[in-house]
Design a protein around this nucleic acid. Structure first.
Length: 426
DNA sequence: TCTGGGGTCCTAGGACCC
DNA sequence: TCTGGGGTCCTAGGACCC
């Protein structure tokens, strides 16, 4: 008896420097120039063009640390513009779906494709076809890695990023060890900071060494996730492609402040704003929250100030997506954890235990409940038409002095009529 | 002066029950 | 007053991802 092992063929399509590429779409003069995109509040560097990478600008570094390099090399800087990136992402994914394979949208700029049914000799060609089509239809450059497991396709993608063709398959590699040997342990998907420390201590420094470690050792010394990663490196697929978009289980909104905040009034304003955004989001997905967690903290980086961080989780009597009830509960939670005298840097809320409306037992709907439902509906549709926060609650504050910094916005929003680029006739 | 935000999953430990 | 053992469920915190 023999087993026919049906080797999977998995492609990972990943957009190159995605946020930078989005900004370049509307400003082609940025091509070949160093460009970076900052996180919200202009805090950290979260996307870099190749030219910026070559200048030594590090991913995740705080912006102020790189300012000198930026100035010296005339690096173009953008505040992040998520509605633009979201819109471009949808275009890329739509293009991918056109090819008709099983697809898992993994993140804003990545998708796994199941190419198992394709014959080996067509795979790379198919990859190139996909890559060219995305570039042609959306203007976004991608890299594609193909292998027998998700973890290996990540590695193939890693190599493809540095490869001119942009498509790399490890399916036919006779001996994969020399390839894996060049991949640092911390570049393996699923190996983070903590595990990297642990592995290096045990003299496992690259992907090849992790692949060849015994399964008993890894199970004894670590957890199921690590052993799964090691199996995947061996070419045994343990992580399936998830085609259906499962409903989210939590929804969180949090922000750093543009400047430090010490009054409870301003914290209330920010928490209220977060609640309104989160409530709108879960209503748009017909979800209800069972509980809410409210959190505040001071800056963990400020060595001269005392650090304070706290959170409080409160349950709703019945799962809800009603803004007013969510805000009321959140503010009660805030009162519990607020301590006067600290300079707060960030606040946030998490709605959790999300359930869909079908599971929610609305057996006791009163007149009042129905009125509330209608009110929420009209708030949502008004805000959809006229922009967020057209209708809000007084608690959310008007001035919002604590609001974000955003000094480098490209002001392009392909999903907002009022942000259409204008052309001046001369 | 200035250090992001939004998710998922796993695990250890406590509460509770019989 | 002495005080077992096994099971489940829940939660907070940690690790990871992009």
């Amino acid at each position: 008896m023999s087993f026919i092992q049906n080797t999977k063929k998995i492609a990972l399509v990943d957009c190159n420097s995605f946020y930078v590429s989005c900004e370049r779409l509307f400003k082609p003069s940025l091509n070949k120039k160093p460009v970076i995109v900052l996180s919200s509040n202009d805090g950290c560097i979260i996307s870099r063009s190749n030219e910026a990478k070559l200048l030594g600008i590090k991913m995740g570094d705080p912006y102020f640390k790189a300012k000198e390099i930026v100035k010296k090399n005339n690096v173009q800087v953008f505040s992040s513009n998520y509605s633009l990136y979201g819109d471009i992402s949808r275009r890329v994914m739509r293009t991918l779906k056109y090819f008709g394979t099983k697809i898992e949208i993994y993140s804003i700029d990545e998708a796994f494709l199941d190419l198992t049914d394709l014959s080996d000799n067509l795979i790379e060609l198919f990859g190139k076809k996909i890559r060219n089509t995305i570039l042609e239809w959306t203007g976004i450059p991608t890299s594609i890695g193909i292998a027998s497991t998700k973890t290996l396709s990540k590695i193939a993608n890693h190599i493809a990023k540095k490869n001119k063709s942009g498509v790399v398959s490890l399916l036919n590699a006779k001996d994969i060890d020399p390839v894996l040997e060049k991949i640092n342990i911390n570049d393996v998907w699923g190996v983070g900071r903590q595990m990297t420390k642990f592995y290096i201590k045990n003299n496992i420094n690259n992907a090849k060494q992790l692949k060849n470690v015994s399964n008993t050792w890894i199970k004894k010394n670590s957890n199921v996730l690590s052993s799964r990663t090691a199996m995947e490196l061996k070419g045994i697929s343990c992580i399936d492609i998830e085609v259906s978009q499962s409903k989210r289980k939590s929804c969180c909104v949090s922000r750093s402040f543009g400047r430090k905040v010490d009054s409870i009034q301003e914290l209330k304003e920010s928490i209220t704003t977060h609640c309104l955004n989160a409530a709108e989001k879960i209503r748009s997905e017909s979800l209800f929250a069972k509980s809410i967690t409210i959190s505040v903290r001071t800056s963990p980086f400020q060595k001269t100030e005392r650090y304070y961080s706290n959170s409080k989780t409160l349950d709703f009597p019945i799962a809800t997506n009603n803004s007013i009830e969510i805000v009321k509960t959140a503010l009660a939670g805030l009162e519990i954890i607020f301590i006067k005298g600290y300079k707060y840097q960030k606040s946030g809320i998490v709605l959790s235990g999300l359930t869909s409306s079908e599971n929610n037992q609305n057996l006791f709907f009163t007149d009042k409940d129905n009125k509330m439902k209608n009110l929420m509906k009209s708030i949502d549709s008004t805000n959809y038409k006229y922009g967020r926060s057209t209708l809000s609650l007084a608690d959310a504050g008007i001035k919002k002095k604590w609001n974000l910094r955003k000094e480098h916005s490209s002001k392009i929003d392909t999903a907002d009529f009022y942000c259409l680029p204008t052309i001046k006739a001369s």
